[in-house]
Design a protein around this nucleic acid. Sequence first.
DNA 1: CTACAACTTGAAGCGCGCTTCAACACAAGC
DNA 2: GCTTGTGTTGAAGCGCGCTTCAAGTTGTAG
Lengths: 128, 128
Amino acid sequence: MRGLAIGEVGRRAGLATSAIRYYERAGLLPKPARASGQRRYEPEILGLLEMIRMARAAGFTISETRIFLTGADKPSARWQALAQRKRAEIDATIAKARRMKAALKSNFRCGCAETDDCARAIARKACG
Amino acid sequence: MRGLAIGEVGRRAGLATSAIRYYERAGLLPKPARASGQRRYEPEILGLLEMIRMARAAGFTISETRIFLTGADKPSARWQALAQRKRAEIDATIAKARRMKAALKSNFRCGCAETDDCARAIARKACG
DNA sequence: CTACAACTTGAAGCGCGCTTCAACACAAGC
DNA sequence: GCTTGTGTTGAAGCGCGCTTCAAGTTGTAG
């Protein structure tokens, strides 16, 4: 069999075949060669899928990933803008996560007197 | 007018009225008093909505928020478990965000020779 | 009284990133 | 040849957290 079948690619990349087809439709993957109608991939596809995996894990949407892939080796203005925006988003995410931790640690304490005049008393009524 | 109408609550809490009704249906808010069929809220609802906002911002799902609200003042085992799990998730989120930043900073450099044997060359073909 | 804003409901829609389904074709092993 | 596995397609479904819609009721200002 010339080239890898989609199932094999999926196994190696840790992806469902449906996700691979989805990426192809979304324009993240090149149209592969076909043998009797079936996709046949070169092993290089695995590197590309790994890049996609990284971009997705980095919080890129599918269309951002597309921009990212097309421009990664020759950074364009478009690419630079994307990267900068993403850096800012990531910083915001980290800051938010820190705030969450602080809130969780303090049990979301409010300063109100014991129980009944507190929002929590209302919450109990809501959920109870 | 006795009590706050839903629109006023929405304005003060910075929420759409549809979201408030959604929270009520989801069991996060108590069923409010009614005047001629219309919801009338006590000002205390704003404190509760603020707690919900914090929990949501902290990455709690709606049903987690429900657990959180009902148990926040008397931490139960269920609540403790939720808090612990969330702390772990938050740590993972932060770690991932750091990795993203590193990846972005390095432009996702791969080590391959100039261009054509690289996944990026394939990516260009895909998106080109 | 007349407008018009704000409220009510249940049901449906949305965006994202896939997954699942139906219905079929082909491949590989016995 | 037959079975079983793997592939193909387009369309539909899912989960989440709301939002939007339709069609009606109520509140308020002039």
